[in-house]
């Protein structure tokens, strides 16, 4: 019997490196907790502090704001891919991997998949807590699956872009800054207050930026509201970002690693 596995090389490589990335996530409890606690705090701030004053046109602001918080949580969590990719690039791990008969970009693919897995878990936690707080979705199975699908696409897109960002910047600290940029993007969308209430310039941005159709479609699907064209727009935006992220990360990886 051969000591060599019959699984095709690239599949095995991504699988093994995914196992490594997930172990890293499970063992850096602080990062995982902050990725869950931060969105929960924001949820509480908006519901219990601002919620009373805002009312946001609907009697239950909670139902309005939860999709925004879910997206915020996914954006924040996915951005951490930049840090883990950068750490691998600067620590010499990458040189070792590249001297192995391993497809170089397998390590990037593993980071992106691990990020999606991590964010599915933290999103589920945030969703669970919001259900306890009184979030009442009315979605059917198909709606749930669609909402989950578009969120996973979003996580993959942000993770791939973050991986590319992690390859550009020189340090893990700089890579960490991406989280904060992505943390603010959902604020200037329809996530927390309707864009109609914003000044004209911000409103234009809020209505057309890629996070808005995503939040609109998740909210529509979960609350049984008309989704309209927002689902299609969300898929186009984030499918496009995923493609751009994957290509950019691939090119940058080859350039940075192959000096």
């Amino acid at each position: 019997m051969s000591v060599y596995s019959r699984t095709p090389g690239p599949v095995l490589d991504v699988g093994v490196l995914l196992g490594r990335s997930l172990r890293h996530s499970a063992r850096s409890i602080d990062a995982t907790i902050s990725a869950i606690v931060l969105p929960l705090l924001i949820l509480c701030v908006f519901v219990y502090i601002f919620g009373g004053a805002l009312e946001a046109g609907t009697p239950d602001y909670l139902n309005y704001v939860v999709p925004g918080v879910i997206v915020l949580c996914a954006a924040f969590g996915s951005a951490s891919t930049a840090v883990s990719v950068n750490e691998d690039m600067t620590s010499g791990v990458i040189d070792r991997l590249r001297s192995l008969p391993v497809v170089g970009s397998a390590v990037l693919a593993a980071h992106v998949v691990a990020s999606v897995v991590r964010n599915v878990v933290s999103t589920a936690v945030v969703l669970g807590v919001s259900l306890l707080m009184g979030f009442r979705p009315v979605a059917g199975v198909a709606d749930w699956l669609l909402a989950a699908g578009v969120l996973v696409l979003f996580m993959a897109g942000v993770s791939a872009l973050s991986a590319a960002f992690g390859l550009v910047v020189s340090s893990a600290e700089a890579a960490g800054a991406l989280s904060f940029v992505l943390l603010f993007l959902p604020y200037v969308s329809s996530g927390f207050v309707p864009p109609e209430t914003m000044p004209a310039v911000l409103r234009g941005f809020a209505e057309y930026q890629p996070v808005t159709p995503l939040i609109e479609s998740v909210r529509g699907l979960l609350l049984g509201l008309p989704v309209g064209s927002s689902l299609g727009h969300a898929v186009l935006w984030w499918g496009g970002f995923l493609l751009v992220g994957v290509v950019a990360a691939g090119v940058l990886f080859r350039r940075r690693a192959g000096r």
């Binding site: 090389g9 095995l12 490594r20 010499g92 791990v93 192995l100």
Partner: peptide
């Protein structure tokens, strides 16, 4: 270039798997 988050054994097993054992 050892992975500090993993144990010694995990590092070795991972390397073996990446060499397609």
């Amino acid at each position: 270039t050892v992975d500090e988050v993993l144990t010694g054994r995990e590092n070795l097993v991972m390397m073996g798997r990446l060499r397609h054992l």
